[in-house]
Amino acid sequence: MTTHPDAGVLARYAEGDPALDEANVWSVETHLETCADCRGHLAGHAPDDTLALLERVAAGIDRGIADGPSPVPRRRAWSAASRRWFVVTLAPWLTMTAAVLGCAVLLQLGMPELPSLVLLLAPVAPLPGVAVAWNRRTDPAWELIAGTPAAGLGMLLRRTAVVLAVVVPLLAVAGARTGAPLALMLFPSLAFTAASIALGALIGVRRAVLVLAAVWSLAVVLPSLVTSELPVVLHPGGAAGWALAACAMAALTAARADLFRRLSSGN
């Protein structure tokens, strides 16, 4: 800190004495910036017309603040989140998924002679949500978003994560109610999610979801309902295979990340 200027210099500075040379003015100002005591002394030296001017300015500023728009209230994060796209667009699809899973649980509890419907439906449960997640038909602002640097695989994965965050707990609850093994509930659904994104790189995620869901229903769900037997792919030993498939599909997706930079016409 610089040395305190003496009272005489401070008084001349306060009066705006033109005889005070620039070097002195600078040193006084530098000192005032860091010394609250000297600022207090300076206020005591201020002439009346300066005090009147300050009074007028303060009153003017107060009036301006009172008349102007009020400050924007601090928003809570959840209030903006509740208006986000996924609440409006995704909520009906996720509700439908929950309802279908609920029906499957009830059916299975009511008719134990059928093969486990919950197990049969679990692999395709996240797919409706994934299909809607990044899609020009369901996202009204797609054209604005498709041209931003954030668009791409990262955005698709973020939105898929929102879907999984809802569907995976649902599957866990459904599995717990019916006594189905948890690994066989989760790994196939993750494998199908990863596969729809990997296939989506080539034909668009929406089409990929349609293809995968159709193949699964025709090749596995229908035959097992007809024969009343659980298919061999859903036997307890298959969990490791499903986990492996999920990892392989995820790796394939990561390797083709550049294909997601534009929203393809398939979406």
Binding site: E143, T148, P149, L259, R262
Partner: peptide, 25 residues
């Protein structure tokens, strides 16, 4: 082609002809 678009997109501003938006925002 298949170039990385991220850098160019950061310097872009685009107003489409008919743009959709989230009505509750």
């Amino acid at each position: 082609g298949r170039a990385d678009l991220r850098r160019a997109r950061r310097g872009l501003g685009y107003l489409p002809q008919d743009f959709g938006f989230y009505p509750r925002f």
